[in-house]
Structures are given as C-alpha cells and as structure tokens.
Amino acid sequence: MNKETYRKRVSGMLPAGFLILVMLPLLLLPLASVFIYALKGGLPKFASYLVTRDVLFALRFSVIIAFVTAGINTVLGTYAAYVLSKTRFPGREQLSIILSLPVAIPNVVVGTSLLLLWGPIGLFGQILGPLGIQPMFTAAGVLLAHIFVTFPYMLGTIKPVLDDLQTTYEEAAYTIGASRWQAFRYIIFPALKGGLLTGALLTFAHSLGEFGATVMVSGNLRLRTQTAPLYIFSQFEGGNIEAANSVAAILAVVSFILFSLILYFAGRTRIKEERR
C-alpha cells in the first residue's frame, strides 16, 4: 500500500471514528456497563437473579402487557390511520396532531392525567368506583397507560403507507365489484402487512420499556403491577444493583432483537415499495 492510498483510507475512516468517539460515552459504554455489572458475579449468579419469583412475574407481566398493547394498538392505530388517510372531514389535520400528541407529552404527565381521570377522584373513577371497578393500580390501569403512550407508533407507521397507497387501487377494487371490506382485505391490508409488523414490534418494544406512565398508574405493586422496568428501578433504589442489571441486560437483549426485526421488516417494506 503506498502512502497516498494509506492516507486516503485513513481520511475516509475519520468521520466514522469521530462518530464512535462521540457515541461511546453516550450510548455504547452505558449499554456495555449494564452487561458488565450484570455478569460481574459470573453467569450462575446472573441466572440466579433471573429466576426469582419477582423477576419472573415482572418479565412475564411486561411481556403480556406489551403483547396486549401491541394487539390493541394494531387494530386501533390501523383504524385511525385509515380514517385519517382515506376519509375527508373538517378538523382532520387537527385530529391527526392530537392523536400523535402522546409522543410529545412526557410519560409522567400521561400517567398523572390517567390517574386524574380513572383514579378514585377522577371523572370516570367516581362513576366506576361505586360499581366496584377501579382500573388504577391494577393491570388494567397499566394497560390503559401503555395503549395511550404507544398509540402514535402504530399510527405513525401505518398512515404514511396508506397516504402513499394510490387511491386508484381502492377505486379499481370498487369498480371491479369489491365491497369496502373486500377492498380492505384484498387490496389495502396486503399493502400494510410490512407496516403492521413494524408498527406492532415498535409498539411492543416501547411498551416493554415504558416507565414514566406505568410508575404513576401501577402503584409499583410487586407481584401485582410491577413491570420489568419498575422492578429494575425498585432494585436500584434498594441497592441491589446486580439484580437490577441482570433484568436490565435481558431487556436490552430483547430490545436489540426487536429493533433488528423492525429494521429488517421496515427495509423489506421499503424495497417492496420501490419495486412498485
């Protein structure tokens, strides 16, 4: 390799090197430290932290909540995206902004507002209380918070796909004789498949890691409403850092897998779009 080639190669690598240098303390080292601390006492100890009753409950509860949230928001988000993209009514733009607000509002504020609405002193809470229904500090409350917080992710994934989907596909289906449902089932839905999967995974991942709203509405009750992030927080507060890091490491791995899948499906959808 001559001097010129060497210099070119080095100068080509400089921007990437600088990026890694900046990102190292911001992203990579904190992530690495989670694994370092989690595995500090060796693998057997790491495993022992994960099989306690509290951890197993928190992980299982988090996964169930994330799964149900993703399911509900897949339906709700797709419906909202369809209404906002394919129908025309006054205030459509404003509604679109309102439905995307949960991304902009701090999750703690979301939790507080839910508490104020559904809690014992809230509007709904006062109506439901005498009937023996109290969603706050229960799994239902956690689910409500997660649906609220993650709603824009599905909407944000599906709406652009629907916006780009030419109206004439739907119109072609109608002229051919398809009903609205048949047009959705045979024409629109197949076009949304990639987006639905990406949106569902995104919702699932965000729900799995949700903390701010959950801590407000769940009461952080162990073995009842404690999700994995709340467990990590509680263990940190109690000084049990290795136990906290073990669960954090598991969440980080799951998140990594989920985001790899999201990128994969998003990439596949983009390629399909380009082929059209």
Partner: peptide, 8 residues
C-alpha cells in the same frame, strides 16, 4: 385507470 392500478 391512467396509472393502470394493477394490484402490486
């Protein structure tokens, strides 16, 4: 249709 709208 002008753009054919063949279901992709």
């Amino acid at each position: 249709f002008q753009n054919y709208s063949i279901f992709p």
